[in-house]
């Protein structure tokens, strides 16, 4: 069983966004990191970049696969987890904690309604 925390919502392509603050923390799910295997490289946008819901914002790479990352919400990047550039393994070890990717100032809170709930996401991955 993969962990699907309740304090966030999900995209079908396995990205999450937290819903408990003015900014959203964005990363990939436990299921996604397991599917990818050992993550060796993460490419993320810079602070201040804009992202649009559903569009690519970066890349995560393991030794056997490469996945594009899609934005679960639109907004401005206010913080980037630069630790991942040196320690991409954090995405595997702690996807919802130390393996977070971006902090985004959400431009349209209504977009959260279009994301999968933890329950819906859990159903999708089972």
């Amino acid at each position: 069983m993969f962990e699907v925390p309740e304090d966030r919502k999900y995209l079908e392509s396995h990205e999450y966004a937290t819903t408990d603050g003015e900014t959203a923390t964005v990363g990939i799910s436990d299921f996604a990191q397991d599917e990818l295997g050992d993550v060796v490289f993460v490419e993320l946008p810079a602070e201040g970049d804009e992202m649009t819901r559903g569009e690519e914002f970066g890349v995560v790479e393991s030794i056997k696969a490469v996945s594009d990352l899609y934005a679960p919400v639109s907004g401005t990047v206010v913080d980037v987890n630069e630790e991942l550039f040196d320690r991409p393994e954090l995405v595997n070890e702690d996807p919802y904690g130390e393996g977070w990717m971006l902090e985004v100032e959400v431009s349209d809170a209504d977009e959260f309604d279009e994301l999968l709930s933890p329950e819906e996401y859990r159903d999708q991955t089972e």
Partner: peptide
């Protein structure tokens, strides 16, 4: 870094 290559990434 074989994920750059065709046998993994195909058309990309």
């Amino acid at each position: 870094l074989q994920t750059r290559e065709q046998h993994i990434r195909k058309e990309r």
